[in-house]
Amino acid sequence: MGADSSEGPAVADAGAPSRPGVVDPPGAPVHARPGDLERLLGRYGTMARIRAFEEAVGRRFRDGDIHGFVHTSIGQEAAATGACAALRDGDYLTTTHRGHGHCLAKGADATAMMAELFGRETGTCRGRGGSMHLAQADLGILGANGIVGAGIPIAVGAALAARSAGAGAVAVAFFGEGAVHSGAFHEGIGLSVAWQVPVIFACENNHYAEFTPSEGSWNGPSLVDRAASYGMTAISVDGNDVFAVEDAMSELVAAARAGEGPAFVELRTYRMGGHYEGDATPYRADDEVERWRSADPLARARAALEPLGALDRADALDAAAAAEIEAAVDEALAAPYPDPASVLENIRA
C-alpha cells in the first residue's frame, strides 16, 4: 500500500541530488481535487499559524525572551498539519526538539505555548519545560523531547494503552530521520510489530541531522525499505504537500484504528532555518535552500488555491494568524514568571 504509489518510486522525487545526499525538492502545487477548497483553506490556516508562530519565536529568541535551545520547523508545516489533520482529540502524539508545529496542529493554545517558551507560569508546562519539553496531556500531546529517539517507544506504549482502552485511539510518533539510527527507534518499532499496536511512525526527513546531511550517514537502503523489513506498512510521501500527507496519514490511521497494527511514513521535507536558532548553517549551500524555498509548503498550497480564486481568503488567514500570534506574544510576555518558591512542586505525585 502506498499513498505515494501514483507518484512512482519511494524516495526520490525528481532530478539529480544537488550534492551528495540531499534530494531535490518537489515542484508541483498541492494535490487539490474539486471540492477540496474549504479543507485546503483549513489546512492552509493551520500552516500559516505554525509559520507565524515559528517566525515570532525566531524574533523573540533574538530579543532574548526565549532561553536555552530552540528549534523551529519553518518549511515543515505541511508535515505537522497534514498528519495531525488525520487525528482526533483522543489520539496521542510524541514529538521532538522540533515540535512546535505538531503541538499547534494537535490543538495546543499558541498563547500557552509561547508563555512556555518565555518561561512563564501560564505556559503549557508552567515554565518548567520550555521549547524542548512542550506537552499537554489533555490533548494527547505526551511531550516534545530533548533526547533523540526517546519519543518513539513512548508512542508505542501510548498505543498499547489506547488499544487496552478500546476506544479506537491511535498514537503518532513524530521524529526526524536522524533518529532512525537510535536503539530507541529499532526497539520501539520492533515492539510495535510484535504487539501489533495502533501506532504510526511519522519520520520527517528534512535531510539534515544537526550539521550532517543524513543520506550520507545511512549509506544503505531507504528509510522505507528499512521500516518495511520489520514487517509493517511503510510508505514515503511528499511531506511539503499537505494533502499528500493528510491522505497518506488518514489511510494509515484508519488501518491502525481498525486493528491492522503499526505503520511507518516518511515525510520528505526540508528545514528552511538552522538546526537551532542562531545556527548560521555553513554546512549547506544557499542554492539548495533556495531550491527548497520554491517548494515551500505554504506557497504550494497557495498555488493550488489560486486557480480556485481563493488567494484573498488565504491572505485573510495569513493576517488572522499574524494577529493571533502577535496577541499570543503580548499576552505571554505580560504573564508572570513562576514563583521560585514553587520550584520543588510536582517532583512526585
Binding site: 519545560g129 519539553h133 514568571y337 521560585p340 520550584v343 520543588l344
Partner: peptide, 16 residues
C-alpha cells in the same frame, strides 16, 4: 542543587 529536575524558566533554575 536542590533535589529537582533542572527547570527551564530562568528564575526557577537559579533557585534550584
Amino acid at each position: 542543587a536542590l533535589a529537582s529536575p533542572v527547570p527551564y524558566s530562568p528564575g526557577l533554575e537559579a533557585a534550584m
